[in-house]
């Protein structure tokens, strides 16, 4: 019971308190600065392992799909092909295996397979996927910008000024209004949102450290 439930909560409390306490001490307070610096370095490493954890989940669910010949299993195979192509060459490059100089280019400027995949597959696919949204954002704009009430009108006016003020033809006429709108009223809104969100995040952090919020461990409040 202690190892399964209490120990993780105790570790969260300890790991959470170290950076908070360290914040209040100068660099020569090695009793707290040293463990904080270790944790800082170590958690970057753990985050690397945590990121790769997602790979296992993706492989599991897609292999299952292929085995059961579920609808769209061919696309699952394409996904795994893409992942293994980039993943294997990326891992080999990172380990400097097979004469690879890394994950970038060879000294003569020729790309490694990983760099080739980044430039000719990953980047165009990513940009096109985002660019496609330009079409859908137009229909979303039609729904959002219909002048039904004061709030929708303000939304419309702000968006129109920002769009007009950022293109060459409108920069002269609307540039200064856009600039003011972005700096002052938009700045005030963003500042309010940042303060509100930061306070919310800080209070959630406190709940996690104190063990009130424990769903990230798969535990219920009563456990």
């Amino acid at each position: 019971m202690f190892l399964r439930l209490r120990l993780p909560l105790l570790l969260t409390l300890l790991a959470g308190l170290i950076p908070i306490i360290a914040f209040f001490f100068k660099d020569d307070a090695t009793f707290i600065k040293k463990p904080n610096s270790w944790l800082e370095q170590d958690m970057v490493i753990v985050s690397g392992f945590a990121l790769l954890l997602g790979v296992v989940n993706v492989v599991q669910s897609n292999v299952r799909k292929i085995e059961r010949r579920e609808k769209g299993w061919l696309f699952a195979a394409v996904l795994l092909f893409g992942m293994f192509f980039m993943g294997i060459f990326g891992a080999a490059g990172a380990m400097r295996l097979g004469g690879l100089p890394g994950i970038g280019n060879y000294p003569n400027g020729t790309p490694t397979p990983f760099a080739w995949g980044s430039v000719y597959m990953f980047t165009p696919l990513q940009s096109t996927m985002f660019a496609l949204l330009a079409f859908y954002i137009a229909s979303a704009a039609f729904r959002a910008f219909r002048v039904r009430n004061l709030e929708a009108t303000i939304l419309l006016v702000a968006a129109v000024f920002v769009m007009l003020g950022r293109i060459p033809v409108g920069e002269g006429a609307f540039g200064s209004v856009t600039e003011w709108m972005m700096q002052v009223p938009n700045g005030a809104a963003q500042r309010g949102i940042i303060i509100g969100a930061a306070l919310g995040a800080a209070s959630l952090s406190l709940r996690v450290i104190l063990g009130i919020e424990r769903s990230y461990l798969g535990l219920e409040k009563s456990e």
């Binding site: 790979v55 996904l79 893409g82 992942m83 980039m86 993943g87 060459f89 490059g93 995949g117």
Partner: peptide, 13 residues
């Protein structure tokens, strides 16, 4: 599907 796979592989590297 290729984009999803390539993205994941990219982040592995």
């Amino acid at each position: 599907a290729l984009f999803a796979g390539v993205s994941l592989g990219y982040y592995i590297g």
